[in-house]
Every structure is written in C-alpha cells, then in structure tokens.
Design a protein around this nucleic acid. Structure first.
Length: 247
DNA sequence: AAATTGTCCAACCGCCTAGGG
DNA sequence: TCCCTAGGCGGTTGGACAATT
C-alpha cells in the first residue's frame, strides 16, 4: 500500500538548489512567513516538494543560522547532550542556537565520533572503549544508559534509560521557546531539567554545558564559512564574503 | 598529470506522530 | 474510533572536492 507521495514527484525538481530557487523561497517566506509547506512551492513558483522547501529553509536559508565552524565549546556541549539524549539531533540542536539538527548530525558523524574514538571513548556509549561490557553498578539503568538512540522516531519511552535514572521524561521535547527553530523545536528539555538531572559520564556536570548554552551570546565571532552547493566558498568574519542572501 | 581513495555535507527517503474531519 | 494529511525527525545516500598514490 504505502503512503501517497508528499507531492507530485513527476513535476518536481530534485537535487541541489539553484540560486534562483533559493531566492524565490527566501523571498516568499520573508513576505508570507513559514506557513503551509505543501502549498508553498506552488505559491512561490517553485518546482519542489514542500518537504524539500522546508528542509532547504531550515537547514540552509534561515537567517538565524550560525554557519560558522563548530567551536570546541560547542563540541563538548554536543558530546554532553548526546550522552544524555542519544541521537535526538533535533533536541540537541534546540540547545545550540543557530545550529540545525542536520548540521549537528553531520558534524557528529564526521568529526565528533572520531574525536571521541581518539580519546578512547565509545561514541555511542560514551564510555571508555576498553571498559568491560558488564557494569556492576546495581543501578542497571546506568549500565544501559547508552541511549544509543532509541528506535528511530519511537516516542522515547519514559523508561528509556539514561544517566543516573535520568529518564526521558525530563528531556522530552519542549513545546515553547526557540520556536523559530522550526522542526527542531519541539524539545521540552529545559535548562533546569538538564541542570537538575543531567549528570553524565563526563566529569563536569551539565551546568557547565548550561553556560555553554549561551555560547551564541558570549563567544560570537568565530570564523564563518559560506557554503554554496555544498562546498565552502569562503571563510571570514561575518561581515565579509557575505552570501547573497545575507542582508 | 591522472587515477584512486577519503572526506564532507546537502538533500532525499521512509517512517512516525499529531491533529482535524 | 478510524482515516487522512501535513509536518517533523533520523538514517542514508550522492556527488563534489581534497588528499594521496
């Protein structure tokens, strides 16, 4: 049986977006806001499916995207959050202003995994690689803690094991705040939740992470790379090499 | 210089959930 | 209660570029 396609694929473009398509989409959303993604392509004169438009906007065109290289502080925060949340990229992204779930996911797979492995830490379990599988802790939750990501899209069960009994109840998606983050903002993780519950394998607690949550405000100006069609086309301060969509 | 291999990341795919009728 | 649709999410892929042989 299967689902009906999200749009009429026969009449949609696929693959890399062109400058003109980006312009049309940006223009349309500036004028009308993010509304019904399904009808947006037609209204904006785009031969794309709504999903594709949504993704392009969220991951690339949104004006509040940070787009700079990840800082060491962000790296560490991502690692901490991943140890607590598993592969809940959208929730993690919600804690990193200006970052998208896709970006973080890619960054995790290409950089952080390697970084952790070089430290002798298993990127899935966040435990030392040589550590015996059997953990003697009577708190079995902690031995299973490896959230190695719950099944995809499965609602995280309340018993989803986590750090020191920190279950997903405390880190379930948030309904408000960072609402402009679109797809990634249903997270309900509050700083308070994380602060109260979020001890993880790493020696420092989430409190330090909490400070890092303000990176955007305090660290600011790392080098910025401009990317076009998937390639880095320029690096510099945010004021230079401005891409066409930045005003 | 050419061929091969590795790296990176935007975009796609398929599934799930929420919400409305 | 069931069905349908839109939106959202995480995993995976494709292709361009970089590095190495």
């Amino acid at each position: 049986m299967g689902r009906s396609p999200c749009c009429e694929k026969a009449h949609t473009n696929k693959g890399a977006w062109t400058k003109e398509e980006d312009l049309r989409l940006t223009d349309y959303i500036r004028k009308h806001g993010e509304g019904c993604w399904r009808s947006l392509p037609k209204a904006a004169g785009l031969l794309r499916c709504g999903k594709s438009c949504r993704l392009r906007w969220i991951n690339y065109l949104r004006p509040d995207l940070k787009r700079g290289n990840f800082t060491d502080e962000e790296d560490e925060l991502i690692i901490k959050l991943h140890s607590l949340l598993g592969n809940k990229w959208s929730v993690i992204a919600g804690r990193l202003p200006g970052r998208t779930d896709n970006e973080i996911k890619n960054y995790w797979n290409t950089h952080i995994k390697r970084k952790l492995l070089s430290r002798g830490i298993d990127p899935q379990t966040h435990r030392p690689i040589n550590e015996p599988a059997a953990v003697t802790d009577s708190n079995t939750a902690s031995s299973q803690r490896t959230p190695a990501a719950p099944p995809q899209n499965a609602a995280v069960p309340s018993t989803f094991p986590n750090v020191n009994g920190f279950t997903s109840d405390a880190i379930s998606p948030k309904s408000e705040s960072s609402s402009d983050h679109g797809a990634t903002t249903s997270g309900t993780t509050t700083d308070e939740d994380l602060r109260q519950n979020g001890e993880c394998y790493y020696s420092d607690n989430i409190n330090s992470g909490r400070e890092e949550l303000n990176l955007e405000l305090t660290l600011g100006t790392g080098s910025t790379r401009w990317v076009e069609s998937g390639r880095i086309t320029g690096v510099g301060s945010s004021a230079e090499s401005k891409p066409w969509w930045v005003h």
